[in-house]
Deep mutational scan, measured.
Amino acid sequence: KLLSSIEQACDICRLKKLKCSKEKPKCAKCLKNNWECRYSPKTKRSPLTRAHLTEVESRLERLE
């Protein structure tokens, strides 16, 4: 599967780190437990900047 097509777990399953069936409108866990089942939009991760990478590398060197 391509990364862009990976389905996201519902908010509660993601928060509780449960295996989500990803069914809509309610996944199996939410249906069974009568929880409100919501699927928040995916958040875009910002790409690493060179400055951040350099900072992490220098912190790693100090720890070694």
Rank of each mutant, 00 (worst) to 15 (best):
residue 1 K to L: 14
residue 2 L to I: 12
residue 3 L to S: 09
residue 4 S to I: 12
residue 4 S to N: 08
residue 5 S to I: 10
residue 6 I to P: 11
residue 6 I to T: 11
residue 6 I to C: 12
residue 6 I to M: 13
residue 6 I to N: 10
residue 7 E to V: 09
residue 7 E to N: 10
residue 7 E to G: 08
residue 7 E to S: 09
residue 9 A to C: 01
residue 10 C to G: 02
residue 10 C to N: 07
residue 12 I to L: 10
residue 12 I to F: 14
residue 12 I to K: 09
residue 13 C to R: 05
residue 14 R to N: 01
residue 14 R to K: 09
residue 15 L to T: 10
residue 15 L to R: 06
residue 15 L to S: 11
residue 17 K to F: 00
residue 17 K to I: 06
residue 17 K to W: 06
residue 18 L to T: 06
residue 19 K to E: 04
residue 19 K to S: 06
residue 19 K to A: 05
residue 20 C to I: 07
residue 20 C to D: 08
residue 21 S to N: 05
residue 22 K to M: 04
residue 22 K to S: 05
residue 22 K to R: 10
residue 22 K to V: 09
residue 23 E to C: 14
residue 23 E to N: 14
residue 23 E to Y: 00
residue 24 K to H: 13
residue 24 K to F: 15
residue 24 K to G: 13
residue 25 P to R: 02
residue 25 P to E: 04
residue 25 P to Y: 02
residue 26 K to F: 15
residue 27 C to S: 08
residue 28 A to T: 14
residue 28 A to K: 14
residue 29 K to A: 05
residue 29 K to C: 08
residue 30 C to M: 07
residue 30 C to L: 01
residue 30 C to A: 05
residue 31 L to G: 14
residue 31 L to P: 05
residue 32 K to C: 09
residue 32 K to Y: 09
residue 32 K to N: 13
residue 33 N to V: 04
residue 34 N to W: 04
residue 35 W to M: 12
residue 35 W to I: 14
residue 35 W to S: 13
residue 36 E to K: 11
residue 36 E to S: 14
residue 37 C to Y: 09
residue 37 C to P: 03
residue 37 C to A: 08
residue 38 R to C: 14
residue 39 Y to P: 00
residue 40 S to T: 08
residue 40 S to K: 03
residue 40 S to L: 04
residue 42 K to G: 08
residue 42 K to C: 08
residue 43 T to W: 02
residue 44 K to E: 04
residue 45 R to Y: 02
residue 45 R to F: 03
residue 46 S to K: 04
residue 47 P to E: 07
residue 47 P to L: 00
residue 48 L to H: 04
residue 49 T to W: 06
residue 49 T to Y: 07
residue 50 R to W: 04
residue 51 A to H: 10
residue 53 L to E: 09
residue 54 T to R: 03
residue 55 E to Q: 11
residue 55 E to R: 10
residue 55 E to Y: 13
residue 56 V to R: 03
residue 56 V to D: 08
residue 58 S to P: 03
residue 58 S to R: 09
residue 58 S to L: 13
residue 59 R to H: 06
residue 59 R to T: 03
residue 60 L to V: 14
residue 60 L to G: 05
residue 60 L to S: 07
residue 61 E to T: 13
residue 61 E to P: 00
residue 61 E to N: 10
residue 61 E to Q: 12
residue 62 R to Q: 13
residue 62 R to N: 07
residue 63 L to D: 02
residue 64 E to D: 09
residue 64 E to K: 08
residue 64 E to P: 08
residue 64 E to G: 05
